[in-house]
Amino acid sequence: MELIITFIQKAIGQGIAILFGATGEIITEKSGNLNLGIPGIMYMGGIAGLIGAFFYERNNPAPSPAVGAAIAVLCTLLASALGGLIYSVLTITLRANQNVVGLALTTFGTGFGNFFGGSISKLAGGVGQISVMTTASAFQAKIPGLSNIPVIGSVIFSYGFLTYSAVIIAVLAALFINHTHKGLNLRAVGESPATADAAGINVSAYKYVATVSGAAIAGMGGLYFVMEYLGGTWTNNGFGDRGWLAIALVILALWNPLSAIWGSIVFGGLYIIYIYIPGLTRATQELCKVLPYIVTIIVLVVTSTRNKEEKQPPASLGTSYFREER
């Protein structure tokens, strides 16, 4: 029982970063932009939040956890939105190839994270020495009272505020996409920009807003990882391939943020299940880490053979729109 509770907690802990990334990417892809820069943007978001908190705590003798958290969130939103903006300018305004720009942005973002991570490690006095304890304590604060309820408390109420934000943002995103006028317009932009244009929808504006806000949401996944999961420190390449898992999760969730919520927990569980299976060698552990991708491939195979139109990616995904092109 104890083991199962821990497993669920750890699965959720792994899943939340992926959920942020997937929600951001779903909003982006609904506008027809395939942003493969999300893994890099999550690195950028994570390091920016850490830098913000680091300098706040360094220059302030008595730092307040709430202010530190606010600064970290703000820095993350700005940095990751900037990543989304770079992608938008290149692909929407300049109509560059989306795959190339996305992959370049991921390479750039990872390097950006590692470079500044290394720099502030140096300032802090050496590798692994960065610590923003005060700010991290705000991120790791559990819900008082509720988290003490046996079993339910530890499974549902024992996380920091970003975990709940991730779920709430995913639910809001689903409501927005499926039940509002603007969400309908967004879907139309991603499916058929020419149709949306003729209906009087500003295609470029929708693409920009969706891509930039999607990137900002995804960047929060990086912040979650650095603050709530790691407790306010940095290791180079520590975030690993979670960004790619987020993109795989978009496919698993069939572009529905609500499915991404349970999907992220499944992914999180599959990601760490090797720890809980006794008797694995190092080689078989690595094989276990492939599980999320195998599940994604199975889902892809099943949905593409079913061939149901609603379960397909947005029709214009990956292409740029130019009104005068025939």
Partner: peptide, 21 residues
């Protein structure tokens, strides 16, 4: 100029001003 995966009604109201749900 229609979006294939949307219903007739959704296509008809596409782009019309209107906020909220």
């Amino acid at each position: 100029k229609l979006v294939n995966v949307l219903t007739a009604a959704e296509n008809i109201i596409l782009g019309l001003a209107g906020s909220g749900r």
